[in-house]
Amino acid sequence: MSATALVQTAALGKRAVVRTARQPANVVFPLVFPMLLLAVNAGGLKAETRLPGFPTNSFLAFALAVPFVQGALIATINANVEFARDIQTGFLNRLALTPVRGIVLLVGQLGGLLTIAVAQAIFYLAVGVAFGVHLQSGFGGAVMLLLLEACIALAFASLGSWAALRTGSTEAVQGLFPVFFVFLFLSSMNIPRNLIQADWFRWVATVNPVSYLIEAVRALVITGWDWQTIGLGFAVAGGLSIFGFALATHALWNRLERT
């Protein structure tokens, strides 16, 4: 990527961040809602730690992985609703009329979203630590966790960008939220997979990629350097990112049918 393209990408990323920062609802909701759900689940499901084979005594530590995935989902939806609005209002056309390369438009958008997701992750981590969660993987684990969060956010963001570019509709992107939500709830978010009693649910959680994202984050928090689980999380996030990015690039190509 040339220096000009880098500057352009940074400018577009900055715009995405500024736009989010200037909408209090888009700042507060992704920070507060996952924390509320964490509080609810950490309180309501604390009894689960008394199940034989449960991996930790702290349900808060166990559940802390969920906000990381959930926050990335919310950031994705918010940012891509704005992206779809750019298409609806013609803002994307304005950018397309400049000499900027198409891929820069996409990478800039994703870059902004990643920045937001990582900032949110730092907040979740701080709240967890403030409430007594001890990161088993230490400071290095925290850095690795943020890296993993960036990969997770990229995976969701590229899929969200694909939806925005494919449909150009804010409603369609908002419609993704329940879909993502279903994936989240049908995962191992509330209980380790080996402790799921219903066979069908265990099977669904096993084939659900979100389980592996949560488990990788969770490993860094409650287990330590469990390379297999962490590696699997990165692989799933990376695979989804590549898949989503390919789809988004194709959709961008079609959307910007410019010559």
Partner: peptide
């Protein structure tokens, strides 16, 4: 329906917690 499915399917083991 989704909440019903997710809670019943995912958390039924919790009935084995002593006192449930």
């Amino acid at each position: 329906l989704f909440f019903f499915t997710a809670f019943v399917g995912g958390l039924s083991r919790i009935t084995q917690v002593p006192g449930f």
